[in-house]
Design a binder for these strands. Structure first.
Lengths: 143, 143
DNA sequence: ACAGTTTTATTAGCTAGCTAATGAAATTTG
DNA sequence: CAAATTTCATTAGCTAGCTAATAAAACTGT
């Protein structure tokens, strides 16, 4: 398709875009998007966490978290509850209507499918390389 | 930071987000964003290409391409010229004001920095793995 | 006790990706 | 040759990421 090989950067960006789309396909029938599904399952694992905590866990900024949470609240899947110790914070909870079990399976499913036809050794190398790259990027951003 | 290891999907998404941010930092002083810089350099390599062609090269949809091109036009860096053979198409060109040489260097620079401390063998494995993953994702999306 | 600082969630606005739909030009088909 | 189909660029609208700024609550240091 492209006229020249993509750089590593572009390869990664393109791959993650496709990955995200594949995941969206899976969660769509649950009325969710990738980002919302991710938040929902994280709330499930951290019932009662604050918004700042959830944002930190997910590695996103709080305005983004707020918007995703708003959407889940609108869908009746999550709720903010005030806490007595700090008037600024809420404890975030799943509602009775929220069903996260199928979503948990999707993560494993996509990861498994992603590794299809790749040897465990190659996967180990790739994970190691990606981790190093993440470090390299952090350094790059501070230069 | 996160309470459990990210899945491969999340690792990749997180890494590309950081990568993109690093690249944005570089091109910011040129008044550009990653996506705009990418289009600008692609126009430079494909002077006179149509919008559909540019979108195909970049692997993005035409509405996205249009918006990016609009921005570059507004910045006086690119222009649409009609062509006699087909009234629907434009030939896309750089303007005199556009300077893409520094941008070309950024690509190599970021890619090089990304590979810092990673052996060539590991890089080969990783590229191979990523390519396989891209195939796997395509299959996943058709299932 | 109080001023200064930090934390929490929010608002506002920007970017770039997508899909669905559209109108017009061009091409294909029977 | 005309109808059907495809192509091209566009419009409209959705999503999710970000930064900068803000007000209020909570904490810290003197």
């Amino acid at each position: 398709m492209p006229d020249r090989p993509f750089t590593l950067v572009e390869t990664l960006i393109e791959l993650t875009r496709a990955l995200r789309a594949a995941f969206e396909q899976r969660v769509e029938r649950h009325g969710l998007t990738y980002a919302r599904a991710r938040l929902l399952t994280t709330i499930g694992r951290h019932e009662g966490a604050s918004q700042a905590e959830l944002a930190a866990i997910l590695g996103i900024e709080t305005p983004t978290l707020k918007r995703l949470l708003d959407a889940l609240e609108d869908q009746g899947l999550a709720e903010r509850r005030p806490i007595p110790e700090d008037a600024r914070k809420h404890a975030i909870h799943l509602t009775e209507a929220a069903r996260i079990e199928p979503l948990l399976g999707f993560r494993a499913e996509v990861d498994t499918a992603l590794a299809e036809g790749i040897t465990p050794e190659d996967l180990v190398v790739t994970r190691r390389t990606l981790a190093r790259m993440a470090q390299n990027v952090d350094r790059l951003r501070q230069a």
